[in-house]
């Protein structure tokens, strides 16, 4: 429906089944009373309930948390999003501004949200291809030739991912490492390495596979990932704000490598 009448109908009329606050009385969240039906939920279980409307069991929640703990919670101030938090701290700005800005830039291509979506989308496409009778090896090689990269495989800076083993161990410990998407991701890595493409499975690929095996959709995965870096962001802010102001990797004038126009008059 288009045109202004659609807006007239929507004016002061927000229909929702997500939830509402009844002032001084109660809160409803996806049809459940927060104080009497959801009061024993952990924060993460409530987060996943909000995102999906589903109630996951304890091991699933432990897996979802473990993906954050092991893959994105680095207090490493040189990583780009964390560096935003560190710069904010050294500039003596606030922690919420640091974390909001660092979260915002985490919706990035070479890491973060777009990379995570690409990883899951590739696995979904690969699974569809197999279901249609296409050989996995030819699908993988065609994909790589067409797009020059495969989401969830390869890594900037280094060609090794230290997060794979601990996360895989955790998934196995929880009994959640038997799914078809995980097997598929490992098969794709074998093909890439055998064909000498030097593209290892990275943690975004592993996480996407583990989440897809828990029937998390692409959209749900995107929403789940929003705060994934927040622990590293906050920690980096705390670190730089606890040290002397302006001391976080200061740059002198000579650190600008100017390659532009010569001096000229307006």
């Amino acid at each position: 429906m288009r045109g202004p009448y659609t807006l007239v109908h929507a004016e002061d009329n927000w229909q929702t089944d997500m939830g509402a606050w009844f002032s001084g009385e109660r809160v409803v969240f996806r049809g459940k009373d927060l104080f009497t039906e959801l009061n024993d939920f952990s924060w993460f279980k409530l987060l996943m309930f909000g995102i999906t409307g589903k109630e996951f069991d304890d091991n699933q929640i432990k897996l979802f948390e473990a993906i954050w703990v092991l893959s994105t919670s680095y207090p490493e101030p040189r990583i780009w999003n964390n560096r935003v938090a560190s710069l904010t701290g050294t500039a003596r700005s606030t922690c919420v501004l640091a974390t909001s800005a660092a979260t915002a830039i985490s919706e990035a291509n070479i890491y973060g949200s777009q990379a995570e979506l690409d990883a899951m989308y590739f696995l979904i496409q690969a699974k569809q291809a197999i279901d249609e009778g296409i050989e996995l090896k030819s699908f993988v090689i065609n994909h790589l030739k067409t797009f020059r990269r495969i989401g969830g495989f390869g890594r900037p800076i280094i060609n090794h991912d230290e997060r794979i083993a601990p996360l895989l161990n955790k998934a196995e410990e929880l009994g959640l490492a038997n799914g078809q998407y995980l097997k598929l991701a490992l098969d794709v890595e074998k093909i890439l390495l055998k064909e000498r493409f030097r593209q290892i499975l990275n943690v975004a690929g592993l996480a996407a596979a583990l989440m897809a095996d828990q029937k998390i959709t692409l959209n749900e995965y995107h929403h789940y990932s929003v705060l994934a870096f927040s622990i590293g962001n906050i920690s980096c802010y705390i670190d730089s704000s606890a040290q002397k102001e302006g001391r976080f990797f200061p740059l002198g004038c000579e650190r600008l490598d100017y390659i532009g126009q010569e001096k000229r008059d307006w």
Binding site: D12, T16, D17, G19, A20, R30, G31, D33
Partner: peptide, 9 residues
């Protein structure tokens, strides 16, 4: 008065 919860228990 603008919000209607469609699944209020």
């Amino acid at each position: 008065d603008g919000l209607t919860l469609t699944n209020d228990p």
